[in-house]
Amino acid sequence: MRGALLCVALVGCAYRPGSFSHHRETFIGQRTTVGCIDLAVERRPDLPGGGTVLGYAFGNRCDRPATIDLARVAVVARTFDGQELDLHAYDPGAEIRELRIDGRATGEEAIAYPARARFAEVCVDAASIAHETPSRWLCFASNLPPQVVTR
């Protein structure tokens, strides 16, 4: 909090477009820009019983509020035997919903996508987070560095 107050005082706390960092902390994960949103998605180690956890870090490049919709983000996984599954967020409190983030502000969330299977690859449509088109898929292989594929 002290840092944030100092940040306000020094006028240096606004998110700088394209920096993918805030308060000297770099967004972790694969980076992309969709509309006003600079987004980094990180695939964290899978859950022990199956499923995965994705970390989202985002900053609003624009001076106006922008949409962040992690409720309707398209997340698709492929199992090692080739099956394709649509993943749904673990949200027992029904908290995850479409929200707007203020201009030049940042945020981050981590969301679990439980499943019974283990995944060879998990793909996220980054564009769907900001309600942008066309789709922009970020794919994360299992235990391999992430790569971008275009559909």
Partner: peptide, 18 residues
């Protein structure tokens, strides 16, 4: 910090100013 498991901060704290 995973949604559904954390308790101290609700989802979407980054949107509170709006």
């Amino acid at each position: 910090d995973v949604v559904g498991y954390r308790h101290c901060t609700k989802y979407g704290a980054w949107a509170s100013s709006l």
